[in-house]
Write a protein that binds this DNA or RNA. Structure first.
Lengths: 199, 199
DNA sequence: TGAAAATGCGAGCGACCGCTCGTATTGTTC
DNA sequence: GAACAATACGAGCGGTCGCTCGCATTTTCA
């Protein structure tokens, strides 16, 4: 069902995703109307639907782009290949800092990432992001806590991602000068949990 | 501006709050329409507005009732009076278990408690619950981590409440037989954080 | 160059939202 | 039992939502 796109169309799609990220960041997912997204993109409501079949599709495409950007920027730090022997504090710095930076640089990200109000937990707009995060955290767990049962590893990954999700808005909402302290608390929580897993 | 209520009116108000808790639990705060709440309560839309000036007021009243119920049921476990010398694991059991039980028994609770989408962080419907929780956690911290600066204690309380908020939906969403494991993970996270605070 | 496809527009649709208001009924008060 | 307040109703208001549709314009390509 893919239709042939012209260069202008590809550009428009990117502009729509930019506008959607803006709107999600400022208004939240629910209150960011498709008309508002179209207006921010400088196009008419109808034009938006030339490129995306609906609001969910816009959100999912935006989530995919976030995941791709994240991977492109921080793939090395997150792979967990040479992560096995690393000092835990250094590991946390290497993983958490870029992720926090990405969250602060992309305010629309957390509107899709940190929303626990799942309409039905199925096919949510944030599913791509969730899946990507869970996979990478599991890879790190596999390297750091080798003795863990697969089911326990999956659960621990969910817990770690959830903690990050929950703390990120706290970091983003705090004034500039208190952010280092908030980030330190986030790392402290993650470290405490990871330490108790290895024990 | 308080108007004189008859016994029937007081009963209706309680029924409306019951219906609102139902609707919030099932649909989430935003999608739970006032007409739907009224229908669930077996009354007309207009009647709802005889008792509450709007949807926010319903939510705030429901939050107040949740806080009162929680205090009535678990005041002793949460006070932090004799909490100072207690074993950390026992403390966590005493505080976390009743809170988790309350969350599971009142599905509408987390729709007000665990929603990080704050319209403006001011005067939110969940503010009464947040304030109550923060105060009680700070009291516990005061007893357990006496050397802490007030600003740090406030931050730690926010972190602890946030962790609980984030993990509760995970517990509630998991199948019955896996809940003990999820609750154990929640306690593990809290314990890890609290331990690192005392160090 | 001309037909087809892609892009673009924007009024407005049907549905739902929170909420109002005129009116009827029930309960309280003296 | 008369006067009044409290409770109850439900059609419907003004507004917003996601989205459609008829039609104009631009680009592609044979």
């Amino acid at each position: 069902m893919e239709r042939r796109r012209q260069a202008r169309g590809e550009r428009r799609m990117a502009e729509i995703l930019d506008a959607a990220a803006d709107a999600f960041a400022e208004l939240g997912y629910e209150k960011a109307s498709t008309n508002a997204i179209a207006a921010r993109a400088g196009i008419s409501p109808g034009s938006l639907y030339q490129f995306f079949p609906g609001k969910e599709a816009v959100a999912r495409a935006l989530a995919d782009r976030f995941v791709a950007d994240m991977r492109a920027a921080h793939a090395a730090a997150f792979t967990g290949a040479e992560v096995a022997g690393m000092d835990l504090d250094e590991l946390l710095d290497r993983v958490v800092d870029p992720l926090v930076a990405f969250n602060l640089a992309n305010p629309g990200f957390k509107a899709l990432f940190a929303r626990p109000d799942m309409p039905s937990a199925l096919a949510g707009s944030s599913q791509p992001i969730q899946a990507a995060m869970l996979g990478q955290v599991e890879a790190i767990l596999l390297a750091r806590v080798p003795g863990q049962e697969p089911a326990d590893r999956a659960r621990s990954a969910r817990v770690l991602v959830r903690i990050f999700q929950a703390m990120t808005p706290l970091v983003a909402a705090s004034p500039e000068e208190e952010r280092p302290a908030e980030i330190a608390e986030l790392k402290r929580v993650l470290k405490g949990y990871l330490t108790s897993l290895s024990a």
